[in-house]
Design a binder for these strands. Structure first.
Lengths: 132, 132
DNA sequence: ATAATCCTTCCCATCATGGTAAGGTCAAGC
DNA sequence: GCTTGACCTTACCATGATGGGAAGGATTAT
């Protein structure tokens, strides 16, 4: 299977497949006599795994660890769970942060007349850098 | 006031002040005879405004628009409110997305034994790229 | 045989930010 | 007045994950 076929089958672009290989996330692909990369269904499976992990927002480092665990069929599930929970914690933190921003901004917007007059609590707040 | 003093006073690094100037977000600073950039309290005020807008997660484009409105003392507050609400909507979307990821991942982690045994629903899910 | 399509590598761009290097300037101490 | 150290300037490189594109070779279809 050529790289573009593997790309189509896995949902990872050919460009990214080469990139993942170059940074060592994926093993170097076998090559045809002409130097073309060859993939089989196992490779595609691994690419799908990477793609889904990306979709989940795992970092490349986390994906590398997950890939290693995925490959190791005797891994303890607690190792996987630890990575997943660490990512859940990261997501929680990010969500909390965004919610804070969002609520503050929404409050300011709610306090703004939103009409033709120039006075605006949003600008007043942005102007006032004394707030934490 | 030198650039590093303006940086200290505004919380924007000297590096970023130069960058913002280079992309046209800020007007070109006045220069001393030797070519040093000079800033006054108005400039610092504007830098603080930019910094707070960044803290709020506004994009550079949004900040450019907010800066223009801030400078225009006869702006209609509805223009500001529109930008703010657009950003609230972006934040809501991002939060919803992250929450979905987080909840799915948390659910998978909850279903994982998390012990020495190798079977793990998290890996099984990542493996199965047929899910939406 | 030729044209179209694919592959390869290599380089460039993104965006906001940081680092660093080379060279000019200023202020303080002697 | 001269040295020294701290500051300024510009210019370049790097990040991380991704896309775009060019140049040149390989395969495939007609």
């Amino acid at each position: 299977m050529n790289i573009s076929e593997a790309a189509a089958a896995s949902g990872v672009t050919a460009k990214m497949i080469r990139y993942y290989e170059s940074i060592g996330l994926l093993p170097a692909a076998r090559r045809s006599q002409a130097g073309y990369r060859n993939y089989d269904s196992t490779d595609v499976h691994r690419l799908q795994f990477v793609r889904r992990s990306r979709d989940f927002g795992f970092s490349m480092d986390q994906i590398a660890a997950l890939l290693a665990l995925w490959t190791d069929h005797s891994r303890p599930s607690k190792d996987v769970k630890a990575i997943a929970l660490a990512h859940v914690a990261e997501l929680d933190e990010k969500i909390t942060h965004l919610r804070g921003l969002r609520d503050t901004l929404k409050h300011l917007a709610d306090c703004c007349h939103g009409d033709h007059r120039p006075d605006c609590p949003i600008l007043s707040d942005l102007e006032n850098s004394l707030r934490p």
